[in-house]
Design a protein around this nucleic acid. Structure first.
Lengths: 165, 165
DNA sequence: GTTATTGCAAATGATTTGCACAAGG
DNA sequence: CCTTGTGCAAATCATTTGCAATAAC
């Protein structure tokens, strides 16, 4: 796991007078083992498969802790359940593009976007602090070639496809 | 009420083979009487005060209908309840700035932002369809002059202030 | 008439919480 | 020890749904 995360978490834990527990550590590890987004229940499933299983409650509590520490961000993908994104430690200012066809989420950074938004914010009389951009878009590959591997993969995996609005 | 909304709703209702009911009309009227954002329960309270009250269920069902018709948008203000924005009919591409100090939501449009985001989307191989930008920012007025009317007003009205993240 | 709509109350389902016990420091 | 953390089961709370009665068209 990224040593940055390790140390930032330790900092936070000590500053708050909290303790180190095997359950919490194992959940944190499961979160940052990949760069995938997840819901609380998906994470619980992931943790269930490790040697050190934790209760749902502890999973929820650990998520809250990490969000409070700024190591994990809640993002809005339009789902009913809350979705979490573990990649803000590495890319503090990334944006999300959600494919309308297959639901795949693409993360991207763009300094021009950030700059322009900050400009607009100042023009309105505010000091920019955080920005969240979600773009919903259709897959060109699907439109031009009639097929897109992501869509096929999603169907095979039985993923819930996004509701067209 | 905006005649555009009236006719677009009628269109949608007829196309779907639905019916006109006084309850639904009164809820729609309550929604578009102001440009304020609202939660389902806030809307229900608003409707309760009119002559023609409706049940909570009908309020929820009407909201879903309008969202499906594209006349109402669900927006994410970081609250637990879903928040709805009735202003997309008039400003189909507006963005939201949320004041971290008082929670006030400022809507603004910016064609440069839209253009740049669309550019980034195409560069990633997608066809832009919809974009959602939320900016969280601090009030300069509060920082420079030590006070901001919005903050005071929010406190007086007993509004829940935003949780600092 | 036929079918959509309403209101009620009950169900749902994700998240939170109270509590007794376990375990860090 | 003293306090935080855990697991369980029960509680919450916004939202959805089944159903019988009502009302569009």
């Amino acid at each position: 796991m990224d040593p940055t995360i390790e140390s930032r978490l330790q900092h936070f834990i000590q500053a708050k007078g909290l303790r180190n527990t095997p359950q919490r550590n194992s959940i944190v590890e499961a979160i940052f083992a990949t760069d995938e987004h997840f819901t609380a229940d998906e994470l619980w499933e992931r943790v269930r498969k490790t040697q050190l299983r934790s209760s749902r409650a502890t999973v929820y509590r650990t998520i809250s802790l990490l969000v409070e520490a700024g190591l994990l961000h809640e993002i809005d993908l339009g789902d009913d359940q809350k979705t979490y994104d573990p990649n803000f430690v590495d890319s503090p200012a990334h944006n999300h593009l959600v494919c309308i066809d297959c639901g795949k989420v693409v993360e991207f950074e763009d300094k021009h976007i950030k700059l322009l938004n900050d400009c607009a914010t100042r023009r309105l009389g505010f000091r920019p602090e955080r920005q969240t951009l979600k773009i919903e878009a259709c897959c060109e590959k699907l439109r031009l070639h009639g097929r897109c591997e992501n869509l096929i993969a999603a169907r095979v995996q039985g993923k819930r496809l996004p509701k067209k609005r």
